[in-house]
Design a protein around this nucleic acid. Structure first.
Length: 628
RNA sequence: GCCAGCUUAGCUCAGUGGUAGAGCAGCAGUUUUGUAAACUGCUGGUCGUCGGUUCAAAUCCGACAGCUGGCUCCA
């Protein structure tokens, strides 16, 4: 609930609606190749393990997979063998032959084990195919595709012949739930990729290598930004090293400035709260699994009315902010009330979910809650969106997707608060604001928070994983649970709307994202080491010449380091470049003579010698304006 | 949490049953240099942890932990 979702990605995979045959026929050539390659892989696996049962084998973003059940656990060691068989099938250049059958025939073939097999397999029913058959609506054609001996229940489409598959490679194995449902049995999922030709396949793997180089986990270690000490601190709980802390504090500074200008006030809240907080908010017991287990106090707390002596680490800030709203009587004159805090939260994410800085257990949220009236809502919501766009511009962020998540009327009262009128009203308000602001967005039904519609901003990590980097949510339900009211001008008490917003998400995820976005080459205002002064040798005259420059830069809060050692200048430059120092100022006898410094910019090379006052002024201006 | 893979020095990696290695980094000297890496020497490891097999284990087997790629979850 509440800011609960702020740093979460939305579903990595939105459960796809069942595709119509028309939609399927829109598959691109590459998708056909990949889907066909999945059939070829199944053919190969069956030649080795004829008893394998296959479930589903679609093309996916970077390749394809096929789910199967098999007593033997397929491991990457088996890949060469499977790929060998696949090559044979491709070389055979069999036709993908489509036939349509009646449902009765299909059921008969599934029961004989023929579907997803090379031959009939008595006693080995094609159970997953039988399950898939049940999903095909009455009236829709039931089709088979056959290549060689392999006969599969499949809507297609495929390439003409197996030989049309240009180049392929098996990549990984995973376990997956049949039909993606946790309640279903697990199946083995074999992933592969395929392209029109070998060149494109090679390019794809080269691109993956490139992506690994800008992976925030790699750059984070190289630059000394953060460390994760699983032994003493714990998995998923990053320690910010001095250079990473610079990034954290620069972001906070940016946020504080933007929020101050937009009329927010700052608050601070403890990291713990009593159990009553989360029974009231509705987080317990339903979300207890995602929270760290409670701390039990040995002695009874004497507070009257205490439910229990249990304290929880907060997983979100909103309940605390709600209590700040409740701490004083509120008038309509106080609204909108915008409470902002870089709140520190803790969530017990499953171990398999942790991912560098992108998915962690301790996190600092760029959180704020805006309490307002219905009349004020559109204006406030628009202002929040403008703040997002301001940030995106600052960071040169262009590849993102705004996702507007709405409710599903059929799930009112279960997944969503049962107030159809307010849903319609708030969704209309949000949609209108988006359209009026000229913001591009996609609308996704059934993905709202349970208390109201929301907008998530999706971005992609270097290796292609999708994350919610920011979120903006409407809450028309939870303030009432906490009994929050304001006195309106008609002297009655009313419940405010609440906007939960986190345009910079969490420090952890946002910085993880920025590291990859910039590949560690941060703009001057963000760079952990902004300036390094390099002397051509260790003569004292050069070091002395540098002193007033250092003094002036530091007086203006510029992060400046020095390299006055006796190494050759080439080595000093190489070290500074490797450390991704934004601006290198080289000082030699010639510079001292002319009152200059020689400027070199990271990744851009030597810019030339300039008067030192001019260089200092330029640095200060670039930082002040947060130039890209 | 599930499936698979991985875990050797701060980092990148070599080492398939017989006395733990290299490069980089670090430290100490030498060098005094004009824009991406001067030279010499030294330090540094209970080979993730625990248990087993063996005369002998980084190496073979098992359990556990962490990480990575997926799956599931994601208020």
């Amino acid at each position: 609930m509440a800011s609960g979702e702020f740093f979460m990605e939305a579903e990595n995979q939105i459960t796809p609606e069942r595709k119509s045959l028309d939609d399927r026929n829109k598959m691109t050539e590459l998708e056909r190749i990949r889907h066909s390659c999945a059939h070829v892989m199944a053919t190969a696996i069956l030649r080795i393990w004829p008893e394998a049962q296959f479930a589903a084998g679609p093309p996916v973003e970077n390749g394809f997979y096929y789910d199967l059940e098999l007593a033997h656990r397929i491991s990457p060691e088996d890949f060469p063998r499977i790929e060998e068989e696949m090559k044979k099938e491709i070389k055979a250049n069999n036709v993908f032959e489509r036939t349509t059958v009646t449902r009765e025939q299909a059921i008969k073939d599934a029961e004989s084990g023929r579907l997803g097999g090379l031959a009939e397999r008595p006693g080995n029913v094609s159970k997953f195919k039988l399950g898939n058959l049940a999903d095909i609506p009455e009236g829709e054609a039931i089709s088979y595709f056959r290549n060689g001996d392999f006969l599969d229940l499949c809507a297609g489409p495929h390439v003409m012949r197996t030989g049309n598959i240009g180049a392929f490679k098996l990549t990984t194995v995973a376990s997956a739930y049949y039909k993606g449902d946790e309640k279903n049995p697990q199946v083995q999922r074999i992933y592969g990729t395929a392209f029109k030709n070998k060149t494109q396949l090679d390019e794809y793997f080269k691109m993956l290598e490139e992506a690994k180089r800008r992976d925030h986990r790699k750059i984070g270690a190289e630059m000394g930004l953060y460390a994760i000490d699983t032994e003493y601190v714990g998995p998923g709980m990053p320690l910010w090293l001095p250079k990473g802390t610079v990034l954290v504090e620069e972001l906070e500074k940016l946020a504080k400035e933007a929020e101050f200008a937009a009329g927010y006030v700052r608050v601070r809240t403890p990291h713990l709260a009593r159990e009553k907080m989360y029974t009231t908010s509705g987080h317990l017991p339903y979300y207890a699994e995602s929270m760290f287990p409670p701390m039990e106090l040995k002695e009874k707390d004497s507070t009257p009315g205490a439910e229990a002596d249990r304290y929880y680490l907060k997983a979100m800030n909103c309940p605390h902010h709600h209590r700040i709203f409740a701490a004083e009587p509120r008038s309509y004159r106080d609204l909108p009330l915008r409470l902002a805090e870089y709140g520190c939260c803790y969530r017990y994410e499953q171990s398999g979910e942790l991912f560098g800085l992108m998915r962690v257990r301790s996190l600092n949220m760029n959180d704020a809650h805006i309490y307002c009236t219905e009349e004020q809502f559109a204006q406030e919501f628009r202002a929040v969106n403008e703040m997002y766009l301001h940030y995106f511009k600052t960071f040169g962020l262009e590849k993102y997707q705004m996702r507007f998540s709405t409710h599903d009327p059929s799930k009112l009262g279960q997944k969503f608060v049962d107030d159809p009128v307010l849903w319609r009203k708030t969704e209309d308000m949000v949609r209108r604001v988006l359209v009026e602001s000229g913001i591009n967005f996609v609308e996704v039904a059934n993905e709202a928070a349970f208390y109201g519609p929301k907008i998530d901003v999706q971005v992609w990590s270097a290796i292609g994983r999708e994350f919610t980097i920011a979120t903006n949510q409407v809450d028309f339900a939870v303030p009432a649970k906490f009994g929050l009211t304001y006195r309106d001008r008609d002297n009655t008490d009313k419940t405010p709307l609440c906007i939960h917003r986190a345009p910079l998400g969490t420090h952890e995820r946002f910085i993880g994202f920025l590291i990859e976005h910039y590949a560690g080459n941060f703009p001057l205002w963000l760079a952990p080491e902004q300036v390094r002064i390099l002397t051509v040798n260790d003569e004292s005259a050069l070091c002395e010449y540098a002193q007033p420059i250092i003094k002036e830069l530091r007086a203006n809060m510029v992060r400046v380091d020095t390299d006055f050692g006796s190494e050759p200048i080439k080595a000093k430059v190489a070290n500074a470049e490797a450390a991704r120092v934004h601006t290198m100022l080289v000082i030699g006898a010639r510079d001292v003579e002319g009152g200059n410094v020689s400027v070199r910019l990271h990744g851009k090379g030597h810019v030339g010698a300039k008067p030192k006052a001019e260089v200092i002024a330029g640095i200060l201006e670039a930082i002040r304006t947060r130039a890209a």
